[in-house]
Design a protein around this nucleic acid. Sequence first.
DNA 1: AATGAATGAGTGTTCATTCAT
DNA 2: AATGAATGAACACTCATTCAT
Lengths: 200, 200, 200, 200
Amino acid sequence: MTTQHGSAGKTAAVPQRLLAEATRLFADRGFDRTSVQEIVEAAGVTKGALYHYFGSKDDLLHEVYARVLRLQTERLAAIAALEEPVADRVRKAAADVVVSSIQNLDDTKIFFRSIHQLSPDKQRAVRSDRRHYHEMFRSLIEEGRDTGVFRAEPVPDLVVDFFFGSVHHLAVWYRPDGPLGAEQVAEQFADLLLHSIRTS
Amino acid sequence: MTTQHGSAGKTAAVPQRLLAEATRLFADRGFDRTSVQEIVEAAGVTKGALYHYFGSKDDLLHEVYARVLRLQTERLAAIAALEEPVADRVRKAAADVVVSSIQNLDDTKIFFRSIHQLSPDKQRAVRSDRRHYHEMFRSLIEEGRDTGVFRAEPVPDLVVDFFFGSVHHLAVWYRPDGPLGAEQVAEQFADLLLHSIRTS
Amino acid sequence: MTTQHGSAGKTAAVPQRLLAEATRLFADRGFDRTSVQEIVEAAGVTKGALYHYFGSKDDLLHEVYARVLRLQTERLAAIAALEEPVADRVRKAAADVVVSSIQNLDDTKIFFRSIHQLSPDKQRAVRSDRRHYHEMFRSLIEEGRDTGVFRAEPVPDLVVDFFFGSVHHLAVWYRPDGPLGAEQVAEQFADLLLHSIRTS
Amino acid sequence: MTTQHGSAGKTAAVPQRLLAEATRLFADRGFDRTSVQEIVEAAGVTKGALYHYFGSKDDLLHEVYARVLRLQTERLAAIAALEEPVADRVRKAAADVVVSSIQNLDDTKIFFRSIHQLSPDKQRAVRSDRRHYHEMFRSLIEEGRDTGVFRAEPVPDLVVDFFFGSVHHLAVWYRPDGPLGAEQVAEQFADLLLHSIRTS
DNA sequence: AATGAATGAGTGTTCATTCAT
DNA sequence: AATGAATGAACACTCATTCAT
């Protein structure tokens, strides 16, 4: 239920190891198809240890979400706070979320595939955090629209849903060993977004 | 393939009923969280009946995919064959897939969430069909690029992945009882796509 | 429940075909591991046809036993009735049962492996027939013992059990494509039996 | 491997209890006709406990075979190593396997009736061990033949198959409450074997 | 901090048999 | 004489979780 931060054991601390292996396995075969036994074996501990640190399998998944949401919210907040033209900030935010989605491809896979497997209350918490993130991004679009930089037409909410569909979909098709590096994809996705919304 | 007992309407034939209930339940709670027991209870038959018509639970899911892929491929082929400027055909194709994705929202939900739960060989078959569809769409974009209507930069493959991320994501956020009708979303998604790729 | 003898269809009559395929399959994978579905598919008919001719899967197995017992009993009776020295009749009977067990190796396999899978009443019937056969053979041994040709010691019952264990075991080790033909094995088994019981 | 709770006797450790009950039930009604549920009920535990100790129902059967093969191989090796005339060693070995087959009648029943229900790889392992045992016995017969004590004619392999058919068949007819004790049967079987092969 | 034996409810699947046609 | 849809009970096996130690 709690996560230790003091480094203790020989290699990584037990809860961190469990979380890392769980993330890998959830991305690989999905939450429901990953057994607690597999997680503890991969982490080199026993079930008792897992249940000492985490209240349930569900908790483990929730931790993955919490970590990813925290990270992305922080990055977006930093970019939104820059003193730059709004179009530049939107471009940077869009590119940044693509890069971080690719760098944490396992988390991205889990994100859009496993929300429904969280318990209802945890699901609510995650969706609420996600909505907060969504609103931050929407605010940037609104700012651009209100200052005449972006077109009025597709309402900002729709634009955000449009773009984040593309971002989540990275987990489906992106291959680290493919022809495109994360930065290249990021630049082109940002380019597509900007073209799609800016006043012609 | 089906046995009707003279009466025309009311209760559909057993395999159709099973497939309909399975689709609803898979969309609702996911493939792994839907038990065969729940499906047969919803369809008002017994497990034996299900296994009389379908080889496995997996088969049922595969049928859902086959139906959706057949439908979308037919619609795209019809639009691609129209004698209209390529930009118009792309716009129509984009709008059409949004409309049909919203009209069959259950299938759309299942599509991007449950592929990984298909058996490897069925997964291969579905991905192959999907790739075929993707390539049809890509050909349209290529045609536009080669005729100077669309920009050269984001390669057509990337554009298709970008756009279909948005389409699949509809299943996550679209609400039939929300403010936007299917046609409105379709028009705006097509608009965003066209703006994002046409030569300025 | 009844067996047709009038040749009817194109190839063999349906019940005969069912019985033949069932025998092959029961020998191959055992009674419990052979499904009714497999039998009817092998025979090229449907379940309804099987249940038209046979009351149950059990019935099918019972027919196999009945056929084999009838055959062996007839052959033994014929040999026992010969007007020859008892030692010669025992030798012939022993050799003959070996030959017929090898010629009908599938039945032999089924015989000693699947009795316990018959319903209690059918099992009783088979055991009773088998006992009758055993007693016929035992009578020959007794005649030899009473006329001083065979030793008194191992009681005839034990001798019969000793020898028929060897015969049933043929199904376990005998290979039609092995080095020994049916007649060779028959001769040597008969030889072993005779040596084991005759007065030195 | 087992956890004893201080008290010495009464209830055996869980895996032993499971193995004992499984042996009894497999002998009683056959492997396929014994359900895992029946085994765990007889042992007074739940399915989970069984699968904690054994990988599968198949594993349980394999354990029975492993135990019986180990026991018989050890006994035969001990007898073969005695410094006695070969005829005496063969007689002792034959009598001994009869006694141990009767003393472990359940294992004997399972042995010749359920091999085919083992998974192919386990079956291979058991057959290989069995062949080893067979070859040890055959070596004794060969020694007797080469030293002129036994006849040349039925080749040793055939003699072994002949005799072990009789031994396995004990499971079919022997009754502990019948007129013959294990030692009596053993003596007479050994007597029959010796008479059947020794030089007259 | 951590073990591992054990639970109990649940899973997908099989199958002999029935019966209206 | 034969079909094939449908049943219902059983099957082997899995798994998140608990708890005494």
